[in-house]
């Protein structure tokens, strides 16, 4: 016998009558499901207050974390994707780009800015995963190439923040050649003896991992990021069994010797500034 007895059957509140929680007031951690006020979450740099899970954030968020007083100058902001192959799959590539632009208010999957990080002037090129999965097409390649020219001209260090599924399929071989292009340009930055710090964030896979992201003088990452060449689904299909726990996380990649350090988001600014100073002196 239960203490309470249901008099009427079923839930009677219609969906329309339910009190809606306004969007964006609360944040639920994707990892531990902890719910925290969105403002607290933002104040904690989009890192879960309970479990430390680093959420995916955009280029402007990184700029606000890194640059002193959130002051910076965006570079090469006008670059947009062409459609050299008139590519069409389930929808024309042109439309895909247009709708991504509308949805994200971005022009492509990378923004470049120059500004001071703890007083050190640095060029930061940061990818946006929200724009077609952060895929690398001609715009990303060209922005990196121009960033490198800018760094050489102004004798500045370069920080690239990667967050990408890899090459952009809709630009086919053009996107493949961005791997060659960015790597070739990095030889010039290297010859100029200017520091290149590569920050790999969740996720960094495919052609981005297999080009500039792995070529930093320092390769660093945030905790718990997915980093790999082949995506986990492809690896799983290849070997035909479950992947080991922690496979392709930053901790895994550090353990196997391909990262210099895992840096928490709260320490990022200080770390970058410190390393830039150390490498310069």
């Amino acid at each position: 016998m239960s203490w309470f007895k249901r008099i009427r059957q079923g839930i009677t509140t219609t969906t329309r009558e339910k009190k809606e929680t306004p969007e964006g007031l609360w944040y639920k951690c994707a990892d531990c499901k902890h719910i925290a006020p969105a403002a607290d979450n933002e104040a904690n740099l989009w890192v879960c207050i309970k479990c430390g899970h680093h959420q995916r954030i955009g280029s402007e968020d990184y700029f606000s974390i890194l640059f002193d007083e959130d002051e910076y100058q965006e570079l090469f902001a006008k670059l947009k994707s062409g459609d050299p192959l008139s590519f069409t799959d389930t929808q024309p590539y042109k439309d895909r780009v247009e709708s991504s632009m509308k949805k994200t208010k971005l022009k492509d999957a990378m923004k470049v800015a120059v500004g001071d990080i703890d007083g050190e002037s640095v060029v930061v090129a940061c990818m946006d995963f929200s724009f077609i999965g952060g895929s690398m097409g001609s715009v990303v390649g060209e922005k990196i190439a121009r960033s490198i020219d800018y760094c050489i001209e102004h004798k500045l260090p370069l920080l690239i923040i990667s967050k990408s599924g890899g090459a952009r399929m809709m630009e086919a071989a053009y996107s493949l050649m961005q791997m060659a292009k960015t790597s070739a340009k990095l030889t010039q930055l290297s010859a100029a003896k200017l520091p290149f710090i590569s920050l790999l964030t969740d996720p960094t896979t495919g052609g981005v991992t297999a080009s500039f992201a792995m070529l930093g003088d320092l390769n660093i990452s945030e905790p718990g990021a997915l980093i790999g060449f082949a995506g986990p689904r492809v690896v799983k299909e290849t070997i035909g069994k479950e992947l080991p726990k922690g496979f392709q996380t930053s901790e895994f990649v550090l353990e196997h010797g391909f990262l210099d350090k895992i840096v928490e988001r709260k320490d990022l600014k200080a770390f970058i500034a410190k390393m830039v100073r150390m490498l310069a002196k």
Binding site: G141, A180, K185, Q188
Partner: peptide, 12 residues
């Protein structure tokens, strides 16, 4: 370096 740097199509 020049050859590979020139690959890509962007609109300004």
């Amino acid at each position: 370096i020049e050859k590979f740097s020139n690959m890509g199509v962007v609109v300004e």
